[in-house]
Design a protein around this nucleic acid. Structure first.
Lengths: 149, 149
DNA sequence: CTTGAAAATAGACACCA
DNA sequence: TGGTGTCTATTTTCAAG
């Protein structure tokens, strides 16, 4: 865990909403010079607080109009098999392993009901699945340090 | 939906893994000149395919060692109330509205079991909840256009 | 879309508070 | 740690082919 002050927290919040803000621009917003901001960001990266920068893509704009979540109940022995399977299915963009009955939670972005059906059928070979359509994904919030809350 | 070729798809994949790649660097990887890459990215942004750029943060490094998902069953009438509640709880970083029994799926990053308990108790005022701990979140995969699959 | 040049900007460094 | 000033590297934008 990293020792954070409120300036670091502000920088993290800003970079989570716009990962392309320059050090100079960040400095303007948190009242710090560009080199000071650069140094802080470098420290946050080195410490593993910032793990990377990613572009966000709208799946629907790529024709992936169906967003679903699948819960899978499987056995402990099948976990490696399951992970290999998820890896091969490009429509599965997110995988959580959960407590409970050896459960996985998967995000699926599919281009058609037929594609979704195929994914569900494939995953269901490993155990019982529960599939729900995502009617709406609300904009994610920034992860903030506990002090801020 | 946006008309995409394989170069656009490659650019999207690269930017999803590193949102700070420069146009020149992207051009080197997809064999395109830097201005051509800039133009394509601009088009993808204008078309809403690229919705933004975000820094990824490791919640554990901020002391948020507990990652849980909460499913909530509530009534249709309480949906606005629920959304307002989720908005106020900083530990809830992600909200999906699901089909099925008026259900929400929430991601929670909490600093302690006590904090998680408080979140669960708060959310549970709206209806029955199921809470699971996330033992492991696998690295998300890039969203890719159907042609690539 | 490419090349080439110009203008703008960002990031890195040294030095001082 | 942070601020200022500067220098360099890099980026983006624009013109022309």
């Amino acid at each position: 865990m990293h020792s954070m002050d409120s300036t670091d927290a502000a920088l993290l919040a800003l970079l989570q909403s716009d990962g392309r803000l320059s050090a100079a621009e960040l400095g303007r917003r948190v009242n710090l010079s560009q080199p000071a901001v650069s140094a802080r960001i470098h420290r946050l990266e080195q410490a593993g607080v910032i793990t990377g920068y990613r572009a966000s893509v709208d799946p629907a704009k790529l024709g992936l109009n169906i967003h679903a979540v699948i819960r899978l109940r499987t056995t402990h022995a099948q976990i490696p098999t399951a992970l290999a399977m998820f890896d091969k299915l490009a429509e599965i963009t997110n995988t959580y392993r959960l407590t409970g009955e050896d459960c996985f939670l998967l995000d699926v972005h599919a281009g058609s009901a037929e594609r979704l059906e195929r994914i569900v059928d494939t995953v269901a070979r490993l155990g019982p699945v529960t599939t729900s359509l995502v009617l709406r994904a609300y904009p994610p919030k920034a992860v903030t340090s506990p002090q801020q809350q």
